[in-house]
Amino acid sequence: MFDQWRKKENEDSVLRPECEDLIRLDNLVKIYDTGAVQVTGLDHINLTVRRGEFVAIMGHSGSGKSTLMNIMGCLDRPTEGHYFLDGIDTAELSSDALSAVRNRKIGFVFQSFNLISRTSALKNVELPMTYARIPRQKRADRAMELLELVGLKERAEHMPNELSGGQRQRVAIARALANQPPLILADEPTGNLDTAASVEIMEMFSEIHKLGSTVVVVTHEENIAAFTDRIVRFSDGRIVSDEKNPNPAEGSGRIHAGKLYAPREESEREEEEGC
């Protein structure tokens, strides 16, 4: 099945092997050219995130963390330097190839949830799989499984506006996991949530991480960053500190994400070996 849809995608040539360094930023510069003034968003950033890390990127607004988030999410391109995602130099890719990269390599979780309105939770979760050309039935089954794992099976047919903030974010997480991407990229995922829901969501990220996924969370809240095991601080477009968090906050253990993020089976992985 998977082989079939892989072949269909000609952009798949860029979806190459998995590397030890999932993210490598090489002298990354982003300059916003507003005509009269040139604003430096990122100033020669060098950063490596290894596979399986749980990283918080911190900074105040204007520190460049959102710019970095956009580039790491392949939504934007650097002005200078290189960004290697899973060994792929994204600077060279066409916008359609970037779409394919986002589809397969990245699971997005946004501050404002970004679910498609008037579309059921189930259909929202299915969306990345739709663009991955996964057959309808398989898609629906997996979306249902994912919703069950985030505890929203009964809400599968609900529209986003019928769900609470926390529930919406859980749908978004389920959606982010749909194509089993190596990288989960969360931009202020708790920014619109109350404390209880925030903790719940962060616990979920912890579980996802424990199962071997690489999670990058952009936040400005210390207590959110505390869940991660590495904190990178930004200021004025530069990294000011990059340190390990020796004692990440533990999840309450309420959420058993055992099957939540099942890494791809060996048979599927085979052809992606070698780096």
């Binding site: 939504l75 359609d96 779409s99 986002r102 970004n114 498609i116 969306l127 663009y131 959606r175």
Partner: peptide, 13 residues
């Protein structure tokens, strides 16, 4: 916004 979401999730042009 919906278009933005779709593109972020992998929709091509």
């Amino acid at each position: 916004r919906e278009i933005g979401i779709r593109k972020a999730l992998g929709a091509r042009t």
